[in-house]
Write a protein that binds this DNA or RNA. Structure first.
Lengths: 205, 205
DNA sequence: ATAAAATTGTGACAGTCAGTCATATGATAG
DNA sequence: CTATCATATGACTGACTGTCACAATTTTAT
């Protein structure tokens, strides 16, 4: 948990720390990140660091929060404009997240961040979902989806479907940022997968 | 890379080390595993350890290899007996892997192993796929699947389909071992997801 | 059998790290 | 002016990994 002392800090100092964290994370993957180096770069004392943060996890939270802040408006907009089409929404999500690939610094930070994230960690997408919970009108992303076009309509089915799509999205994002695969090709394969999920893999008899 | 010196070791000593590794991994998650403790338990010197292994990664390889060895026969059998039904095969894979949940020690090791595995790490399933490459007659698991019942038949489509199924399988395995969710419930949801992928999520018009 | 060479074993050591704690400094209020 | 509270500091502890010069052992050659 990021402590309240961090938010009490004068803007200048807080920014200095955030920048040091970003610098460290663009050079080392999450498990190699050194608090020693960060306090050196940010020019704060060891004791101070532990007065602001519990541990490295807090630093990850800062970074993910930063990325989330940068894209939350566009995601909100994508949800609004998709008219409840769950498949279209997931394609838009991919595009919004891979926007970060264009900025070299952001790409590196995301790479190092994702590289060592635990396999079942919630990460950005779930972080965003949590953020959305704060929105008055939304409880879950799922509620956005128009069920009229879906074959299965009860909550359990919709949940299964979003879980499948989220898994495929996560995996594609990893292929782009961590494995460094060509974004266009990954997108192509991602869309193909969505198509399969949409219309089914077996022939109708 | 596990060094050849490790395999030159007398059986007794090698077993002592493997047991020490298993003991350590059943008590600590992969990132907390201590080489110090392992060499103490196995009663070998620090220098020796580094003559057998490069680093912790090798220990993970030992363990995954052990689990793979335990299940490879059953997986091979499952592939043979499924008559090329890719969906049935993936359900069998889930069942074979979750067998390990019944043994408390194996459950703990797998939990600690999976907990910190990098999100896009190959893991057991891919490890097994690689093993299969060693088999004379097999190149990839995919070649086992009968494409006649599939709507899409070219290589690209089959690859996309197996990737989707593998992702869903991985996620379900994590839910069982790491998140500690009820195996029966996870299985139910896993089968539901396979059903959706199989027959499609949208209504036919 | 003996010497030489290759392999394996050893633990002290250097360098790094995270987290703690007694103490110092600064700010605020009575 | 002093008491209280919030913040800052860096030395310190204990733990960790990977290395290296040297010792012991086994293998090979003579």
């Amino acid at each position: 948990m990021i402590k309240k002392t961090f938010y009490n800090l004068p803007e200048e100092k807080r920014q200095r720390i955030i920048e040091a964290v970003m610098k460290e994370f663009s050079g080392s993957s999450a498990d190699k990140v050194s608090i020693n180096r960060i306090i050196k770069i940010a020019d704060i004392s060891r004791g101070s660091f532990y007065q602001y943060f519990d541990d490295k996890v807090d630093l990850v939270e800062i970074l993910i929060g930063t990325f989330a802040d940068m894209s939350i408006d566009r995601i909100y907009q994508a949800l609004q404009s998709s008219n409840g089409d769950i498949f279209y929404t997931y394609i838009r999500l991919f595009d919004i997240i891979t926007e970060f690939e264009k900025d070299e610094s952001q790409r590196l930070i995301l790479k190092n961040l994702l590289k060592n994230i635990k396999a079942n960690d919630s990460l950005i997408l779930d972080y965003l979902t949590n953020r959305f919970k704060g929105f008055e009108k939304l409880q879950k992303i799922e509620e956005y989806f128009n069920r009229d076009i879906l074959k299965y309509k009860d909550d359990y089915d919709v949940k299964c479907l979003t879980q499948i799509l989220t898994q495929i999205l996560k995996n594609s994002i990893f292929n782009v940022f961590v494995s460094g695969k060509d974004c266009g090709k990954v997108r192509e394969s991602y869309i193909r997968k969505i198509e399969i999920i949409k219309s089914g893999a077996i022939i109708k008899e």
